[in-house]
Design a protein around this nucleic acid. Structure first.
Length: 319
DNA sequence: TACGCGTGGGA
DNA sequence: TTCCCAAGCGT
């Protein structure tokens, strides 16, 4: 949960998750939809699918015994070198380095690294430095300490060098370049995409599709969508072709912007009243798309499924 | 190597 | 409003 996500954001999700899945066995036995339901809103949903798979793998391949070597840990989906290091150090008190965002910043400043930290060569250099600094004794304390140093004193903006125990030996501080480190390669502006979300409404129910396991909102449930702004003629043809639904009018809801890590999505929700439920859903004939499971979802009697934030938002916007 | 992958908070 | 980026990983 903490990968690329701040502690304060994670806490309520963590509490609910641990209440529902207090141990490996309960998580391994859960339905994926149930896991994604508890993850919904947190983002990066591959983490949830990977965690679920990892629990199953530990139960089956590792006979319920949590692995405690870098090789075994990194063989689990969703656990890379840094997460493996954190588990080894914090859970098992084994000597292992980590390199998360906080540690990168601390090391880049302490050693005065002026090359972009998001370049491969610099990253390799930082891993070497992390390895050198990692002590044999009190590894859990050290690991927590260097992360907390980055989170509390050696912050991105307004670092509190005067309170830092490493100030005297900090290269960036000595050179007066703390504020400009770490250097990052410029990222280009996010592209803007537009989509019409089709809210097929029947009584109190809305048609949702399970999305493919890869790509945005993988394995979560969402409305059918059409690229571009609402166009009633396109909506009519799409509804007929994909769902055998005949539509006569539609009611636009207020559009809004949702921003992903790599693009903006301007969403135009459109309510489309439907009289008859299509008993046999038409196959998704779109390119490369398998037949997608569909449900009529009643927001007033919600089921434990993973719904992306904008889908939740649209359901709340419904009259 | 570069990119895909969510969401929310702070500046 | 917009930008940055946060306990990274997989492909």
């Amino acid at each position: 949960m903490l990968q690329q996500t701040q502690v304060n954001t994670v806490i309520p999700y963590y509490e609910r998750f641990m209440q529902q899945f207090p141990d490996l066995r309960s998580l391994a036995q859960a339905q994926e939809d149930e896991v994604l339901h508890l993850w919904a809103g947190l983002g990066y949903y591959s983490r949830a699918r990977n965690l679920h798979r990892a629990a199953k793998t530990i139960m089956e391949k590792f006979k319920g015994q949590f692995p405690d070597t870098p090789l075994a840990l990194e063989s689990l989906p969703g656990i890379g070198q840094s997460t493996a290091g954190a588990i080894l150090a914090l859970a098992f008190h084994h000597r292992a380095p980590i390199l998360d965002g906080n540690v990168k910043r601390v090391l880049a400043r302490f050693h005065g690294i002026t090359t972009p930290v998001n370049e491969k060569s610099t990253e390799s250099q930082l891993w070497e430095l992390a390895e050198k600094h990692t002590p044999a004794k009190r590894i859990a304390d050290y690991t927590q300490a260097i992360m907390d140093l980055g989170a509390t004193l050696c912050t991105r903006s307004k670092p509190q060098c005067g309170r830092c125990p490493l100030m005297k030996n900090c290269s960036a501080h000595q050179q007066g370049i703390v504020d400009v480190l770490p250097i990052k390669k410029a990222v280009r502006a996010l592209p803007v995409r537009t989509a019409t979300f089709l809210v097929f409404k029947q009584d109190n129910c809305v048609l949702l599709q399970k999305r493919p396991p890869t790509g945005i909102w993988g394995s979560l449930w969402s409305m059918p969508e059409i690229e571009g702004k609402p166009d009633f003629e396109r909506i009519r043809r799409f509804s007929q072709r994909q769902f055998k639904l005949t539509t006569f009018h539609h009611q636009p809801l207020e559009s809004f912007r949702h921003t992903f890590s790599h693009y903006h999505l301007d969403i135009f929700p459109v309510i489309i009243p439907v009289k008859k439920i299509a008993t046999k859903a038409a196959r998704a004939r779109q390119q490369g798309m398998e037949e997608m499971p569909q449900i009529w979802y009643n927001p007033h009697q919600p089921e434990p499924l993973g719904l992306p934030k904008p889908v939740e938002r649209i359901l709340r916007m419904m009259p």
